[in-house]
Nucleic acid binder design. Structure first.
Lengths: 275, 275
DNA sequence: GGAGCGCTGTATCGTATGTTACGTATTTTG
DNA sequence: CAAAATACGTAACATACGATACAGCGCTCC
C-alpha cells in the first residue's frame, strides 16, 4: 500500500525516462519543499524544462500541477498535526534490509560516544592542535580511507600532516623522520594487521605518541598507544562497520579546527586565495 | 527579537482592524498551511475578502503575497531540516562539546535514510551485483576516501572493481575502458569539483551508468546520473560531514554482498586461502 | 544500416491569480 | 450629532503561471 507521494515516486522512479527521473531525484533530495514552489523554479532546480516537470507529476497520477501541490500540502499538514508521527516513511514497513543496518549503526555511535569522554577527545584534539611536531596517519586494509579522510582535513588547517600510503617498506623508511614531538594516528580494526603492529611498536620505541582508532576488542597496538578510541563495529552484515570511528574522526577534526581557529582561519583564507 | 512569522503576528495582532485580525487568527489556527494556499482560499476560510488578506500581509511587512509565502516556506524548510527529535528529546543531557556534533550527525543519518527508499538502494545494489561490466569508483577532494573505502570492500567480493586515483589526466585515460555495461560510482559534495563534472559527462556520453553520492543540494553531476543518493551534510563544524554518505555506502556494500553471497562466499574463502 | 518510436525542449496560448482603484459602510472624534 | 477618517468589499486589470502543440533528436529494434 502506497500512502504518501515519496513512496509513490520511489515505486515508479525505475520506470521513468531520464528527465523525469531527474525531477524525481531533486524532489526527493529536498522533499517536499521544491514541489511547493512554481513549476519554473522546480524545473530549473532539476535542470530540465517545465513540460518535463508537468509530465512527471502527470505520471504520478495527478491531473495537474496544483493538484499535485495540494497532495504535498495535505501530507505536510498531517505531519504537522501529529509531531509524534514524524516519520515520512512509515516506521519501516518492509522489515527491509536497510533499517536493521541503520539502527545498528546508530546504536554503535551512541555506544561509542557513551564510552568516550569529552575530556579524552579534548586531550587528543589539543595534542593534535599544538603542533609541536609532525602528524602521521595510517590505517589498515579497510580503514586506511579513514586515515586519508582525516589527513585530508587536517592538512588544510596545519602543516606537517602526512598520510602514510603504499607498501609497508615505504612507511618503515619514514620512521627516521619520527620522534618524541610527533603524533601517529593509527586505524586498526579486526583482523588486526601484523604489519601495523610492527610499525606501531617501532614508532613507540622512538617516542612517538600514538593515537589509536580501533574496535571494542582493542587492537594489540593499544599496548603502545597513548590514546585509544574504541568504536563499536558490529552490524548485521558480512562486514564490520567503521561508521562509528568515522564519526569520531569527524568530531576530532572539528575539535582540532576549533582550537586552531585563529590560525586555521587565516590558513584557510590563504588557501582559498590560491585556488 | 522576532524570528518567525507566527511571533510577528502575535506581536502586531493587537493593532489590527477587525477584518485583518480574523485573517491573522485563521492563519494561526492552521499555521502555516492556509498561508500557502491562494489568496482566494485564504480569504474565504477567514470569511473576509481578498484585499483584506493582502492588506494583512502588507501590514506584516511583506511587499506582496508571494514574498509572504516564501517566508512561510523557508520556515517550514528550516523546521523539516532539523527534525522533531530535537524538540521532543531533551536537548542532550551532557551539554558537552561532543554532543551537538553527534546529535547533528545522527539526525543527518535518519534524515538521509528517510529520503532514501529501500527500493532505490536495492536497485543500485542489483546493478552493482549483476556485474555485466566493470565498476569504477572515484571521489572529490574530501570524499575520495569514501570511494576508496567502498572499492576496498567491493573488490573483495567481485572482480573488475577499480578505484580511480591520482591526477585528472590519469583517470581520463581510463575512459577508453568504459562502456555501456559499466558502472561509475562518484562521490561529490560541495564545493563540487569541475574536474569530476567533466569526467562524469564524458563517461555519460560513453553510456556508462553513473551512481552519484552527493549532498542535498545535488552536485551538477546529477544531470548525468542514473542513480542519485542525496545525503545530509550539515553539522555544527567548519566542515561538512560525510558521515551519512559513509553509512549509505556501508549499507550498499552490505546489500551487494548479500546478493553475491553464493558467489562471494566462495571468493572470500579462496582469498582467505591465499593469505 | 535504416525505420520507427519515444523522449525532450521551444514557443505559444489561455487562464487563474494577485493586485489596484473606487465606492460604500462603519467607526471615531470634535 | 455631524463630519471626517478609516476600514472593507466589489469589480476591473495585468501579470505570471501552468498547459499544450509541435518539432528535433536520440535511441532501440529490425
Amino acid at each position: 500500500m502506497i500512502s504518501n507521494i515519496a513512496e509513490l515516486i520511489a515505486d515508479r522512479i525505475g520506470a521513468m525516462p531520464a528527465g523525469e527521473r531527474r525531477a524525481a531525484q531533486t524532489l526527493i533530495a529536498n522533499y517536499p519543499m521544491i514541489g511547493l514552489k512554481t513549476v519554473a523554479e522546480f524545473s530549473s532546480a532539476a535542470g530540465v524544462s517545465s513540460p518535463t516537470i508537468l509530465r512527471f507529476v502527470a505520471r504520478l497520477g495527478f491531473q495537474n500541477y496544483p493538484e499535485f501541490q495540494s497532495g504535498l500540502q495535505d501530507e505536510l499538514a498531517a505531519q504537522l498535526q501529529s509531531p509524534a508521527i514524524r516519520t515520512l516513511n512509515p516506521p519501516s514497513p518492509n522489515g527491509g534490509t536497510v533499517s536493521p543496518m541503520l539502527e545498528a549503526t546508530l546504536d554503535n555511535m551512541r555506544e561509542t560516544f557513551r564510552h568516550l569522554s569529552d575530556r579524552q577527545l579534548a586531550d587528543i584534539a589539543t595534542r593534535l592542535a599544538e603542533r609541536r611536531g609532525k602528524t602521521f596517519l595510517i590505517g589498515g586494509r579497510f580503514t586506511d580511507p579513514l586515515a586519508r579522510y582525516m589527513a585530508a582535513h587536517l592538512a588544510v588547517i596545519q602543516p606537517d600532516v602526512f598520510h602514510l600510503a603504499g607498501q609497508e617498506s615505504m612507511w618503515r623508511d619514514r620512521l627516521i623522520d619520527m620522534g618524541k614531538r610527533d603524533v601517529l594516528v593509527i586505524f586498526d580494526i579486526r583482523r588486526y594487521q601484523g604489519s601495523l603492529l610492527r610499525f606501531a611498536e617501532k614508532a613507540h620505541q622512538r617516542g612517538v605518541q600514538i593515537v589509536l582508532f580501533t574496535d571494542q576488542w582493542l587492537s594489540p597496538i593499544a599496548r603502545f598507544a597513548r590514546h585509544v578510541i574504541a568504536g563499536r563495529t558490529a552490524v548485521p552484515s558480512a562486514w564490520d562497520s567503521s561508521a562509528a570511528l568515522f564519526v569520531v574522526a569527524e568530531t576530532l577534526i572539528g575539535a582540532v579546527t576549533r582550537q586552531l581557529e585563529a590560525d586555521g582561519a587565516r590558513r584557510i583564507r590563504e588557501m582559498e586565495g590560491l585556488r
